[in-house]
Lab assay of single mutants.
Amino acid sequence: MATGGRRGAAAAPLLVAVAALLLGAAGHLYPGEVCPGMDIRNNLTRLHELENCSVIEGHLQILLMFKTRPEDFRDLSFPKLIMITDYLLLFRVYGLESLKDLFPNLTVIRGSRLFFNYALVIFEMVHLKELGLYNLMNITRGSVRIEKNNELCYLATIDWSRILDSVEDNYIVLNKDDNEECGDICPGTAKGKTNCPATVINGQFVERCWTHSHCQKVCPTICKSHGCTAEGLCCHSECLGNCSQPDDPTKCVACRNFYLDGRCVETCPPPYYHFQDWRCVNFSFCQDLHHKCKNSRRQGCHQYVIHNNKCIPECPSGYTMNSSNLLCTPCLGPCPKVCHLLEGEKTIDSVTSAQELRGCTVINGSLIINIRGGNNLAAELEANLGLIEEISGYLKIRRSYALVSLSFFRKLRLIRGETLEIGNYSFYALDNQNLRQLWDWSKHNLTITQGKLFFHYNPKLCLSEIHKMEEVSGTKGRQERNDIALKTNGDQASCENELLKFSYIRTSFDKI
């Protein structure tokens, strides 16, 4: 039985969820670079991206490699990797027998973001014989899940209580170790020597080791999670996991709180800001991140802002960003909400898709409305799209047979046209069989910064309504002859009103 693990408890099935942008060198404390989270699957090609990484700022997932063999891993080693800020997950990587050479110096898994409450997941690794993470000293947050690894031993010899604050939620089941077939031998045991430290858990006094050649490092209890030197002297209180010299914040392997210019500090002093819960960055760093993602459509890219001495992905609820200094300031009234469309555009074809934009005031991208039916549609669209004030790209209304009016965009005031449909149009209306009105132009103002209007096959939309939009939106004169079809717009509506004058002759039985 794995020490510190839980057996036999019912657990939810383990679901495996399925960018080499360097964020800056980590400095003297770390020998390499800070790398983003990685999802490495199918083959070993991307694994080489770990070569210079000291910190993975995010998670590391290595999974679904069915053609790899043990010899493929023999020359692979990433000794610079010290810390993973989120979680480490391995799933069905064939041929991998140990992690001792792959990650010989991995010391800390912070667990800032977890995989279903777990910071370390080893699942269905069919050839893994031992973990071998002999320098792993601290899992700051989260638990361990090690399950269905039929060859995995050296679990009962690990004292997880020396690595985690609590072992109650560890789930370590259905491994070879369960069948008591392992016969784990710690260093020196074969020669009758006791080389590794022994600890007591559940009444068992057991030597602690990761492999037959690597003991588990056990520091004096007084050192807590700070770690200790090879001689057993406690590291500085700002260290986490390990250090090369005692009581020196510049000799830590990793930091308990924050890293700044080669030393570990309790908090980031001005003019620095907390970033990702582990390091200090200056304003320029946060500003660069903001600008890199301002026009990016890459998933996970955030326009970072500053709030409460932190550089964070977005302002919290009730705050909006001051564009001059990136500071989050309290909103006066309802907060603006910028919604970034991942692929640059979004099609609204149902109430469900409209709900995804609920509360958005600025759309960074283009909207395509293609709704053919739905219950209580006008009210639903207004509830979900009615706060949109600005669209950076274009607005396209296409084959939306259920629409009679666009009044559900009740606050839309600006279409920038930074991206144009077919390279020309910022407003595009095609084949809307029941569209009769755009907006009530006596109450609604709309500016279209650039781009043209396109109207074709809107049989109940009168040309007068379209011409009014040209005047109000500032697009009059931009359109070419064929942009607004004269014969297919309003051709099934009563669009022309003329005053009919009647004269009559009164007659009676005795007068003409």
Results as ranks from 00 to 15, higher is better:
85 T>V: 06
252 C>L: 00
238 E>M: 04
303 Q>I: 11
221 T>A: 11
140 T>C: 05
258 F>R: 05
28 H>K: 09
203 G>W: 05
170 N>W: 03
65 M>W: 01
158 I>L: 12
210 W>V: 06
49 E>D: 10
44 L>G: 04
169 D>V: 07
110 R>S: 09
261 D>I: 04
80 K>H: 08
77 S>Q: 12
180 E>P: 13
105 N>K: 04
332 L>N: 15
309 N>C: 04
157 T>Q: 13
333 G>W: 04
94 Y>F: 06
70 P>R: 12
90 L>I: 10
74 R>W: 04
80 K>P: 01
198 A>K: 12
110 R>M: 12
237 S>Y: 08
324 S>L: 09
318 G>S: 11
144 V>S: 05
268 C>S: 00
163 I>W: 02
113 R>I: 14
130 E>W: 04
322 N>F: 14
30 Y>D: 09
223 C>S: 03
330 P>D: 15
28 H>W: 07
187 P>A: 11
75 D>W: 06
109 I>W: 00
265 V>Y: 02
56 I>T: 01
135 N>D: 05
162 R>N: 15
69 R>I: 13
273 Y>A: 07
103 F>N: 00
99 L>S: 01
120 L>C: 05
328 C>S: 03
183 G>Y: 14
189 T>L: 09
72 D>K: 13
77 S>W: 07
98 S>Q: 02
43 N>Y: 07
185 I>F: 07
288 D>K: 10
264 C>A: 00
180 E>D: 05
316 P>V: 06
307 H>G: 03
306 I>N: 03
290 H>L: 07
83 M>H: 07
242 N>Q: 14
182 C>Q: 12
139 I>S: 01
125 M>P: 00
186 C>W: 01
93 V>F: 05
307 H>Q: 07
281 V>W: 01
85 T>I: 06
249 P>C: 03
229 T>Y: 03
136 L>C: 03
313 P>K: 05
310 K>T: 04
116 F>P: 02
316 P>L: 03
31 P>N: 15
267 T>L: 03
75 D>C: 07
171 Y>P: 12
128 L>W: 01
149 N>S: 07
46 R>S: 13
106 L>D: 00
128 L>T: 02
121 V>K: 00
236 H>R: 01
184 D>E: 10
175 N>L: 10
293 C>F: 03
309 N>Y: 06
92 R>Q: 06
145 R>P: 01
69 R>L: 04
109 I>T: 00
46 R>T: 02
216 Q>C: 08
235 C>L: 01
215 C>K: 07
103 F>G: 00
42 N>E: 12
218 V>I: 13
200 V>G: 15
59 H>G: 06
264 C>L: 00
94 Y>N: 07
270 P>T: 10
280 C>A: 00
128 L>C: 03
237 S>W: 10
72 D>N: 15
46 R>C: 15
217 K>C: 02
115 F>S: 09
39 D>M: 14
226 H>Y: 13
33 E>S: 15
65 M>R: 02
37 G>D: 13
237 S>F: 13
330 P>Y: 15
157 T>S: 09
295 N>D: 11
99 L>D: 00
228 C>K: 03
189 T>R: 10
253 V>G: 08
246 P>G: 09
226 H>K: 04
267 T>Y: 15
165 D>G: 12
237 S>M: 05
156 A>G: 11
